[in-house]
């Protein structure tokens, strides 16, 4: 990624003359632009719809709103059954990220710092568990939660998502922790740091980008997961995504409000991606994620 690495592109110019170079560059730009268009059109469409009234949406098609209106957003922010969906989603997602990090940090430290028999296999096994389809866990979770009174609480969804997020978090964190030289641990002990002081004051700040990436992936998984979240809640903790599908089934479709709700669910993801965008590249470079 530094300037010393010669990318193949430079050589293609040497081989084939200036005209062809311009040609390939043009084609490259075309390809990338086409894909960007493909990525952005649905999002634009959603944004466009969210500022239109239902009559306009159904009446005719326009590339931008003729009568710009914020009514759809007003509906969401004034109707508890809508905005509580966001509050519920946010609550269980935050709970899940906190629990996952608390469980995964010590586990990842153990995997990265200690050698013991079978550690590689254990590590890999932990990760493969994540691949099991959530459908297998639906019925047991549902029955268990119903019998202990956890059903329809934020904690229920957060714990269910932890089952998938903890292995992932251990995996990502282990990669970042292994990047910290072991000498730092030893130096800290010699300087008389106790373990917990070392871990909190020295080690965690060193891997904070790793923690950021982990939190991002846990957030993303939990924010977009629907099957478990929808099954394990009914009223009190119903996530916004489930509310959006419910509206589809009812009396026709309130397109405008649905679009506004969609736009609002995108925003947290955009914010989180914006904050971690550089760290994510680092995570990919480590081969994790």
């Amino acid at each position: 990624m530094t300037a010393t690495i010669n990318k193949p592109a430079r050589f293609s110019g040497v081989n084939s003359g200036a005209k062809r170079k311009v040609d390939t560059q043009l084609r490259r730009k075309l390809g990338i632009s086409a894909y960007i268009l493909f990525v952005l059109v649905p999002i634009y469409w959603l944004l466009n719809m969210s500022f239109k009234s239902n009559e306009e949406i159904l009446g005719g098609l326009s590339l931008w709103p003729q009568n710009f209106t914020l009514d759809n957003y007003a509906v969401i922010f004034s109707d508890p059954s809508w905005y509580m969906g966001y509050v519920n989603s946010m609550t269980y997602v935050s709970l899940n990220v906190i629990i996952t990090l608390l469980v995964a940090l010590p586990a990842a430290y153990a995997f990265s710092r200690y050698k013991f028999t079978g550690d590689k296999h254990l590590f890999f096994w932990l990760l493969t568990n994540r691949m099991a389809p959530p459908a297998v866990f639906l019925l047991p979770f549902f029955q268990l939660y119903s019998s202990v009174g956890l059903f329809d609480t934020h904690l229920a969804v957060a714990l269910a998502h932890c089952l998938f997020n903890v292995p992932l978090a251990v995996w990502i964190l282990e990669g970042f922790m292994s990047g910290v030289p072991r000498e730092i641990d030893e130096t800290a002990y010699i300087d008389g740091y106790s373990f917990h002081k070392f871990f909190l004051k020295i080690f965690l700040p060193l891997i904070r980008s790793g923690i950021g990436v982990t939190a991002f992936f846990c957030f993303m998984f939990s924010w977009v997961e629907l099957l478990l979240a929808r099954t394990l809640t009914s009223v009190e903790a119903k996530p916004i995504a489930a509310i959006m599908t419910r509206t589809v089934g009812a009396t026709g479709i309130d397109w405008g409000v649905l679009a506004a709700a969609g736009v609002l669910t995108i925003i947290p993801g955009l914010l989180v991606i914006w904050f971690v965008r550089n760290h994510v590249a680092k995570g990919f470079a480590l081969g994790r994620v």
């Binding site: 490259r28 990525v39 649905p42 993303m220 977009v224 995504a241 669910t265 993801g269 955009l270």
Partner: peptide, 29 residues
């Protein structure tokens, strides 16, 4: 993207955005 083009970082961010959107919103759009 691997050809040292300008604004690679910005492009990479744009490409990652759909990932942050739940399938519900994708489906609706």
């Amino acid at each position: 993207l691997d050809q040292k083009i300008r604004q690679e970082g910005a492009l990479r961010t744009i490409y990652l955005y759909p990932m942050a959107i739940s399938f519900i919103v994708t489906g609706t759009a």
